Structure formats: structure tokens, C-alpha cells
Amino acid sequence: MRRNHTQAKFILLGIIESPCAQAPLFHSFLLIYIVTLVGNFGIVTVVQVSPSLHTPMYFFLTHLPDICYSTVISPRMLADLLSEDKTISFTGCMMQFLTFAFFGSADCHLLAMMAYDRHVAICHPLLYVTTISSRVCWQLVASSYLFAFLSAIVYTWCVFGGSFCGPNSIYHFFCDVPVLKLVCSDTHSSEMVIFAFVTTNVVGTSVVILLSYISIIRAVLRMCSAQSRARAFHTCTSHLMAVALFFGTAFFMYLQPPSSHRSLDKVASIIYTMVTPMLNPFNYSLKNKEVKGALIKCTRNKHHLYSFTTFVTDKDVFFLQDS
């Protein structure tokens, strides 16, 4: 018997069923989420206030939706770790899936844009300013989010457009592709459409990244100076680490039939929804001399401003006391 979707509810079984482990997990994931927020907001702030970082690479970096898709998952997951009631409404589940699919798809495309940016910078440095102009950057970001939105709509319709008439327990800690296992109607066509769009988003963007780095490696190996080669490789290491973490877990999670999802999927999901957004700011800041230099400069400017303010305040107090 088909349920009324507006009244249907799902039960998120969470990361682990053991009550003893939920409190330690809560504190661990809360710390990860706080570090994610502080780190990502910190990177965005440093890029905005540092003219030396007003380049296409950092423009794309500030538009990565790491905070967004982590925020879609983390607060609800943290609440479920402390609550006995783990139910979520049909509408709530659908909206969580829609927003997560949107930000996750956008992340794939923006990582590919960053790889293309590095390709042009290293392989065609004389054309870099004209090829990756400010207008082009905005167009690339806008097109990434537009295609991500269309993909998210298709994903959501394929997963939630069927009939839910059986079990309502989701063996996961958020509403993702495993929801499709609860659909009573035939899901073969939906699985094929999802697979096609995931292939376009994940495989297509990873091919762009792969081809970009093949060209980069060829260009770097043709450089005569060992110092130039080291500097060129160094500018790409941060992006490569982010790509490896994100795409590695995405391939494992989504390029398999929904019927074959298993417990290891939770580990993969934790990596790309919580660990990767937390590591990315440190990855780009600690391994990048430009960001470290901007951070030191901002810290020194803040210290000088504080010293000047203290000096002026002390003088005012001194004159007030004299008068």
C-alpha cells in the first residue's frame, strides 16, 4: 500500500548502534565540525583581505562548498547521536538529499576548474591572464553551480519519486542513495539515470583533472631548472591531496549499484562529508607559502593595530589623568 509521502517518516540508524560509543563519537565529530567551520572561514577571510591571494586559484578555493555540504550533514548527525528519536520526515529527508547532492556535485566541478587553472598557469603562462580572466572565473563558477543544481534535481527525483510502502529504516547517518533501497517500485531505470549523472559529474570531472595533470607533468619535465620543477610541483600538491580524498571516496560510494551498499560506505561518507572539509583549509594553508605568508602578514598587521590602539588609549588615559 503506497504511503502518503507528506506523512511518511524515515529512521536514520546512524553511524553505530552501540549507546556507549555515541557520546565519544559526538565529541569527536563536534570537534571536527568546529575545526571545519573555523578553518574554512579563516581561509576565506585571509583570501579576501590579502591582495596577493586575489588570483583565480584562490577565487575557486573560496567558492568550494566544503562548509555547506558539511553543514547539511553534521548538525543533524550530532543531534541524532544524543537523541533516541532518530526519525526524519519525508520532506526533511528529501531536502537534505537535494542540498547535499547540489553542493557535492558543485565541489566536483570546482575541483576540476582548479586543475584547469593550474594547467593553464604552468603549461601556458603567457596566456594565463587572458585565458583565466575574472569574467571567465565567474562564468566557470556559475556554470558549475547551475549544472550541480540540475543534477541534484534529477538525483532527488530518481530517489524520492517512487513508492515507499515497506520498511522505513535507512542504514546510514543521513539521507543518501541507500534511501533507494526502501522504494517498493522498480528502481532499475532510476539507478541507471543516477549512474549516468554520477558518471558525468564524478568521472567526467576526474578525467578533466587527469588530463590537466598529464599536461602539467609533461610541461614540468621539460623545464631545465630543478628549482622550477620543484616549485611547479609544489603548487599542485595541495590540490592533488584534496582531489584524492574527495574523488577516492566518491568513486567508492557512488559508482556501485545501490543494492550493494554496505557498512564501509559509512566510513567513506564520513571521510568526504566531514574529514575532507576539515583538512582542506589546512592542506591549502600549511603546504602553500603564499597562504602562510598572507597569514603571517595578517597576524602582524593585527598586532601592529592592537599595539597602536593600546598606545593611543594609554596616551588618552595619561592626558585625562593630567587634566
Rank of each mutant, 00 (worst) to 15 (best):
R3D: 09
N4P: 00
N4I: 11
H5A: 11
H5D: 12
H5S: 08
A8G: 01
F10I: 03
G14C: 04
G14N: 02
E17R: 09
E17Q: 12
S18F: 01
S18T: 09
S18A: 07
S18H: 05
A21V: 11
L25D: 05
F26Y: 14
L30T: 06
I32M: 08
I32C: 10
I34E: 00
L37D: 04
V38G: 01
G39Y: 01
G39M: 02
N40V: 02
F41R: 07
F41K: 07
F41C: 07
S52V: 10
S52R: 13
T55W: 03
T55I: 06
Y58G: 01
Y58I: 01
F59T: 14
T62Y: 04
H63I: 00
L64D: 02
L64C: 08
S70K: 00
T71R: 00
S74K: 06
P75I: 02
M77V: 06
L78S: 04
L81Q: 04
D85K: 03
K86M: 06
I88C: 06
C93I: 03
C93K: 05
M94P: 06
M95K: 08
Q96L: 03
Q96V: 00
Q96M: 07
T99W: 15
F100L: 11
F103Y: 13
L111Q: 10
L111C: 06
M113P: 01
A115N: 02
Y116C: 08
Y116M: 10
R118W: 07
H119G: 00
A121E: 14
A121L: 13
I122A: 01
I122P: 09
T130Q: 15
T131P: 03
S134C: 14
W138K: 13
L140V: 15
L140K: 12
S143L: 14
F147R: 08
F149C: 14
I153G: 09
V154C: 15
Y155C: 05
C158I: 01
C158A: 11
V159A: 01
C165D: 15
D176G: 05
K181M: 09
D186C: 01
G204E: 05
T205S: 14
V207F: 09
V208W: 08
L210E: 02
L211F: 10
I214K: 05
I214E: 03
S215L: 07
L221W: 10
R222Y: 07
M223F: 03
R231A: 15
R231S: 15
A232P: 04
C236V: 09
S238D: 02
F247E: 05
T249L: 07
F251Y: 14
M253W: 11
Q256Y: 06
P257N: 11
D265I: 05
A268V: 12
M274E: 10
M274F: 06
V275L: 14
N283M: 10
S285I: 04
K289A: 11
V291R: 00
C298R: 10
T299F: 14
R300S: 11
L305C: 13
S307F: 15
T309C: 13
T309W: 14
T310Q: 14
K315S: 14
F318R: 15
F318A: 15
